[in-house]
Amino acid sequence: MEGVSDNIELVLPFKAGYVSVARLVASGVGSRIGFDIEAIEDIKVAISEVCNKLVSIGSKVSDCYKIVYSVSEEGLKVTYLCDDPSIKCVFKKESDALAIHIINALMDEVELCTDKHVLSMFKVLERDA
């Protein structure tokens, strides 16, 4: 992803009630950069999958996790970060297969289990010719 023009950072506690805030921010950012309603809904569903997983596993070290919405001419990258070093690969069990499938189906690029972040996903902004 080249040419990041804006980063929006959101820090949320490991509480289910705040997942809607992450979805709302995605909706606002997505609308602002030109995604249509279907693409915004895809992004929001993928964000919910990740946030709900993070909330369900929680952390014994950190009270919160961070979501970075990186806007570029190409689209939107959503990156999840946490200060807890044990939270690096949240989707790794067979029971996570459906969530992984949903995220991969809705987003154009997904990075799981890296040393840099918990997870990142990217949605290409389709432009009319």
Rank of each mutant, 00 (worst) to 15 (best):
M1H: 10
E2H: 08
I8M: 10
E9A: 04
E9R: 07
V11T: 14
P13H: 06
F14W: 08
K15Q: 14
A16S: 13
A16F: 11
G17M: 00
Y18R: 07
S20V: 11
S20N: 02
V21I: 15
R23E: 15
R23V: 06
L24Q: 15
L24Y: 14
V25D: 06
A26R: 06
S27Q: 15
G28Q: 14
V29T: 12
G30I: 00
G30N: 01
S31K: 13
I33M: 15
G34Y: 03
F35D: 01
F35L: 02
F35A: 01
F35E: 02
E38C: 05
A39T: 11
A39P: 03
A39G: 04
I43N: 13
V45D: 10
S48Q: 14
V50P: 00
V50E: 00
V50M: 00
V50I: 00
L54C: 06
V55T: 03
S56E: 11
I57K: 00
K60F: 11
V61K: 13
V61W: 05
S62A: 15
D63N: 13
C64Y: 14
C64L: 06
K66I: 07
V68G: 04
V68Y: 03
S70T: 15
S72W: 05
E74I: 01
L76G: 01
L76M: 00
L76Q: 00
K77C: 08
V78F: 11
T79Y: 03
L81N: 03
P85T: 01
I87F: 07
C89Y: 06
K92D: 08
K92T: 06
K92V: 02
E94H: 11
A97C: 06
A97G: 03
L98W: 10
L98Q: 10
I100S: 08
I102G: 10
I102A: 08
I103Q: 08
I103A: 11
N104V: 10
A105V: 04
M107Q: 00
M107D: 01
V110F: 02
V110I: 03
E111I: 10
L112P: 02
D115K: 14
D115M: 08
D115C: 05
K116W: 05
H117K: 06
V118H: 07
S120Q: 09
S120T: 05
M121Y: 00
F122P: 02
K123Q: 13
K123H: 11
K123Y: 13
V124T: 12
L125C: 10
L125H: 12
R127L: 13
R127W: 05
D128I: 12
